[in-house]
């Protein structure tokens, strides 16, 4: 068992706020200042207003609790095969929306639905030697 080698996320201009935030050590969400919706995954518009003119990015607390999870014991994809078993989880963020993530550095038997978790960042090096960061979670 070794650490996950996260595949490089492909950031579009719609999602770059999230990925650039991760590089700064911030968990970035979007809020629509017209209707108040906090949405994840990021979009170029507020999904409810269909308008992006009042959409702002903000740094979330990085706190949340596990909505559900699985201990993955088999995944043939590169970067994950050697990392099994790993904990893939949906985390309900304190700001509202849910995000898919992994819970790292834990005994899988200690992970439970409802457990409090805190964001952390894993740095990976791209083929072109640029660093990028992936938000992951740890049990609080």
């Amino acid at each position: 068992m070794s650490a996950i080698e996260h595949p490089l996320p492909f950031a579009s201009w719609e999602s770059r706020g999230f990925w650039e935030g991760a590089g700064r050590g911030e968990l970035v969400l979007q809020r629509c200042q017209t209707c108040g919706l906090v949405q994840h995954r990021p979009r170029g518009v507020c999904a409810h207003c269909l308008d992006g003119s009042t959409l702002v990015h903000f740094a979330a607390s990085g706190l949340g609790k596990i909505y559900s999870f699985t201990v993955t014991e088999q995944n043939q994809a590169k970067g994950f095969a050697e990392a099994c078993p790993y904990v893939m989880a949906y985390v309900d963020l304190d700001e509202g929306p849910r995000m898919l993530t992994v819970v790292v550095d834990c005994d899988p038997d200690n992970v439970a639905i409802g457990a409090q978790v805190t964001v952390d960042y894993v740095s990976q090096t791209r083929d072109d030697a640029e660093m990028f960061a992936i938000p992951v979670f740890r049990l609080s």
Binding site: H6, E14, N75, Q76, A77
Partner: peptide, 27 residues
């Protein structure tokens, strides 16, 4: 098979986290 390193911007929020078909049903 996992979702690998997809270039789809939306998959960028699942591929880095090792989502698999069976994993999703398992959650």
């Amino acid at each position: 098979g996992g979702t690998g390193g997809s270039r789809n911007p939306d998959a960028a929020f699942s591929a880095p986290y090792g989502m698999t078909t069976v994993g999703s049903y398992a959650t």
